[in-house]
């Protein structure tokens, strides 16, 4: 009788473990289960675009990587200014997971920025700073000693350097995602994105505001901010994410004052190059006053991240 009782208890415990595992497993895939609201501030937006969102098994919000962010600043014609980068001497200040994740993104953006302008020695220093952050986060082998050596061996090969930067970033973010540390992975991306926005706002030539490509890039970040918000909202259970989400809300309040309208997109394919062009036009009401307000907010957020 006692034996049967213990056998029953044992079976119940086993069933509970399996059920709990299934429940946790289902929740951890959670991103795809939530119904996101895709809010782009454009004319004639048709919310019906998202009608079928629940059919998708997995939903990704893809933020610009620190590499892409730096490239957007450079391709807009911004000059190089090393004084704006987060000093590598600050690495010792970052002792929490949150600050290390933010500054992994920030240093990776700075590293990409320096690499794009062929600042090889600076690139090596910033790769070492990014390595310290990755090591601190326990990201094994994302940036190894061998990576630093490869960087040094290829100082005159920008393409190879960009490839190394991209690979190390992919190693870091995939390691965090695979180890169920998605919140930290998102924080890394936010760090890189805010750094790019900071560099862009600092490098704008205020005397040629109209038609300035860098200004256009800053306005464009309104679109990426939507994705930042959606990505962070999916990870609100992490206290570090809640803080950063509040920061992003402050940024959003300013971006909401900027109205962007776009015409319908038409496509045209070049048969020779096989490249399709998406043709459309946008208009906005961005003013130097709004720019000043946005720049000040970005600077204060970035200041709080680099400590």
């Amino acid at each position: 009788m006692a034996n049967n009782f213990y056998r029953f208890k044992f079976s119940m415990a086993f069933m509970l473990i399996i059920i709990s595992t299934l429940v946790i497993g289902c929740k951890s895939g959670g991103k795809g289960d939530k119904e996101p609201v895709f809010d782009v501030d454009m004319e004639e937006i048709d919310e019906a675009l998202f009608d079928n969102i629940n059919q998708a098994k997995q939903i990704f919000y893809s933020m610009p990587s620190p590499l892409e962010t730096a490239m957007l600043v450079k391709s807009a014609g911004a000059p190089y200014n090393e004084d704006l980068l987060n000093s590598t001497e600050n690495t010792g200040n970052y002792t929490t997971q949150r600050s290390m994740a933010l500054n992994l993104g920030i240093y990776t953006c700075d590293l990409s920025f320096a690499s794009l302008y062929d600042q090889t020695q600076t690139s090596i220093s910033y790769m070492a700073a990014a390595k310290k952050m990755a090591d601190g986060l326990g990201i094994l082998d994302a940036i190894s000693e061998e990576t630093l050596e490869r960087l040094e061996e290829n100082v005159n090969n920008r393409e190879m350097i960009m490839d190394i930067v991209s690979e190390t970033f992919m190693n870091s973010s995939s390691y965090l995602q695979e180890n169920n540390r998605q919140a930290l992975s998102s924080i890394v991306l936010v760090g890189g994105w805010v750094e790019g926005l900071y560099l862009a706002t600092k490098l704008v030539d205020k005397d040629s505001f109209e038609g300035n490509k860098l200004v256009t890039r800053i306005i464009d970040q309104k679109l990426s901010l939507n994705i930042v918000m959606k990505m962070l909202e999916g990870q609100k259970s992490d206290p570090a994410v809640v803080d950063i989400l509040n920061d992003m809300n402050q940024l959003k309040a300013i971006y909401e004052k900027i109205s962007v309208t776009t015409s319908a997109i038409t496509t045209s394919k070049d048969e020779e190059t096989q490249v399709t062009t998406l043709k459309s036009e946008t208009k906005n009401n961005f003013t130097p006053e709004l720019f000043a307000e946005l720049s000040a907010k970005v600077e204060s957020l970035r200041e709080s991240y680099i400590l």
Binding site: P36, F38, I53, Q55, A56, K57, Q58, I59, F60, Y61, S62, M63, P64, S65, P66, L67, E68, V165, S166, E167, F169, M170, S173, S174, Q177, I227, K230
Partner: peptide, 18 residues
């Protein structure tokens, strides 16, 4: 660009990316 998006999907399933 350094970003990584991958999922295990079964025939008939969809993934979306923004």
């Amino acid at each position: 660009d350094g970003n990584y998006h991958a999922a295990i999907l079964t025939e008939g399933e969809e993934a979306e990316l923004y």
